[in-house]
């Protein structure tokens, strides 16, 4: 690690003031940041610890949802009785990620800001446009096994590695953000992460000095909630493909279908057209295939990760079959 100035403010306001510079970064659980600082992928001159600023409660909202403080740990979220009963897709997604040790430290806000696991990003002696703009993308012509097949660009094919945010995307949760000047804004999780485009160094919409304060879940929704994570080993591995699904049936037809995907893109992938396609139809293999066609119509593999395209198709079919109790 490079030397840095460690600050631990006792108020959010103070934290905002301390973190306005380009070279300042926030630390909460630190499980991703310190990993990257040791590799000198992250080289902040100032580290602002916000771990003792509260924001660690899960509260009911007026419209029947839940507000999860930015510093609520993944463990606390996954084990909250309300989350377990009303938002099991979120609990399941969190439990499918990392390990108990890491979930005990990882926070809601930190997890949203988790950076890619691209091998070229984490190796500072390799080119990476995300880490070092203009240096090139090592993965496109290199080993792209972990990488994206949707929404990639010629400058970056990295994936967002997390699970929690995939479930939050399916749930249509909202990120609450306070800016350096104290003003507040809300951004849907679905819009929080960015595609790489020609600015791959931007993972998400946060501006310098902005701090995530909470994630709000909308009121309880009807339907079956599932999280399916396909990975190379049975635990402690990032997703090759993951699917978060909230599916409700009305009689023999699908009444609601909110789907988000992990492992495929620079962000949790949410395609509103899937819901339009599925709702009002009777579930069967042909319908699931059409949904996959739509999801993957612009998918592009990079050799090593070509498999993700058929794998996403098959995983989607498995999830839809399970959620709608359709025999395939």
């Amino acid at each position: 690690m490079r030397p840095f100035d460690l600050q631990r403010p006792d108020s959010l306001e103070h934290a905002r003031n301390l973190s306005t510079g380009e070279t300042a970064t926030l630390i909460a659980g630190g499980t991703n940041l310190l990993d990257l600082m040791k590799l000198q992928v992250e080289v902040p001159e100032r580290v602002v610890a916000i771990d003792r600023l509260g924001m660690n409660e899960i509260q009911a909202t007026e419209d029947g949802g839940l507000r999860i403080g930015a510093l609520v740990t993944n463990t606390a979220t996954a084990n909250d009785a309300r989350i377990r009963s009303d938002y099991p897709v979120l609990a399941r997604a969190i439990l499918a990620g990392a390990t108990q040790q890491l979930r005990n430290r990882a926070t809601t806000g930190g997890n949203l800001c988790q950076r890619t696991r691209c091998y070229y990003f984490t190796n500072i002696d390799q080119p990476c446009n995300k880490r070092e703009p203009g240096s090139g993308c090592g993965a496109i012509e290199g080993i792209a096994r972990l990488h994206g097949v949707l929404g990639t660009s010629s400058s970056c094919i990295a994936t967002y590695p997390g699970d929690m945010a995939v479930a939050m995307s399916a749930l249509d949760a909202t990120v609450e953000i306070v800016s350096a000047d104290g003003s507040e804004r809300s951004v849907p999780v679905r819009d929080f992460h960015l595609l790489p485009g020609d600015t791959p160094w931007r993972d998400n919409v946060l501006e310098t000095g902005e701090i995530i304060t909470a994630v709000t879940l909308p009121a309880l929704v009807e339907g079956k909630q599932l999280y399916r994570k396909v990975r190379e080993r049975s635990s402690y591995a990032f997703a090759l493909v993951s699917v978060a699904a909230i599916i409700a049936m009305e009689g023999d037809t699908i009444a609601r279908a909110d789907l988000a995907f992990g492992g495929l893109a620079h962000k949790p992938w949410y395609d509103p057209r899937l819901s339009d396609l599925l709702v009002g139809k009777a579930p069967d293999a042909a319908l699931f295939d059409s949904a996959a066609d739509l999801l993957l119509e612009n998918a592009q593999g990079y050799g090593e990760n070509d498999f993700k395209i058929p794998l996403a198709r098959r995983t989607l079919a498995a999830v839809l079959a399970e959620a709608t109790e359709t025999e395939l």
Partner: peptide
């Protein structure tokens, strides 16, 4: 040293964590 193996697990305030991924000063 990167939270990928668990050999450094200790119990802090009753919770197990990877001691490699946390700053002592905090």
């Amino acid at each position: 040293d990167h939270g990928q193996c668990g050999a450094c697990t200790v119990i802090v305030n009753g919770m197990r964590i990877n001691s490699c991924l946390t700053l002592a000063a905090l």
